[in-house]
Amino acid sequence: MDFISQPWPWYVSGPMIALIMFLLIMVEKRFGMSSNLRTMCSILGAGNKNEFFNFDWKSQRWNLVVVLGAVIGGFIASNFLTPNEAVLISESTVSNLQELGFESAGKTYLPTELFGVSALSDFKSLAILIIGGFLVGFGARYAGGCTSGHAISGLSNLQLPSLIAVVGFFIGGLVMVHFLFPLIF
């Protein structure tokens, strides 16, 4: 149990992700998390107004069950499998983040400055959560997939479009962290 309660090293986590993709392929489904966001739009009635959401969302119910599982998995991992949730990021990352004002760096799982309950009443952190989430949803559908669909499934199938998308993910991420973070925080 000791092994499970520690953070999982990359050489355990990576193969676990491959195993999850393998299981989904073997039950004739595919590994893609962002398509659920489109399904949720359809369930909320977006199909009446827009063709893009007018599809048989019930055929995607299986993936929503995977999402439900991911929620339960997060609950189990956080409550029963992780006695100490501090993420031990590198020293240099901690000092970079402290310079930006993140005192929680190295001490918590998520920065409390952004994700703490009190941050929800702060206009700036709320705006960051909304803009971040919006870009993830918009960008994932525009690119036709996210980390699971492109970086893992698509690249595993040697798809050039997925490589372009992953290069895009990194351009966006690097611009955000290196150029925009100093302006935002």
Binding site: M33, I131, L135, F138, G139, R141, T147, G168, I171, G172
Partner: peptide
């Protein structure tokens, strides 16, 4: 274009929110 532009927008959000959909 859809992969590059969509990918960049996704990457901006991924780094800001610190989480992808899964």
């Amino acid at each position: 274009y859809r992969y590059l532009i969509g990918g960049i927008l996704f990457g901006l959000g991924w780094a800001l929110a610190g989480a992808c959909p899964g």
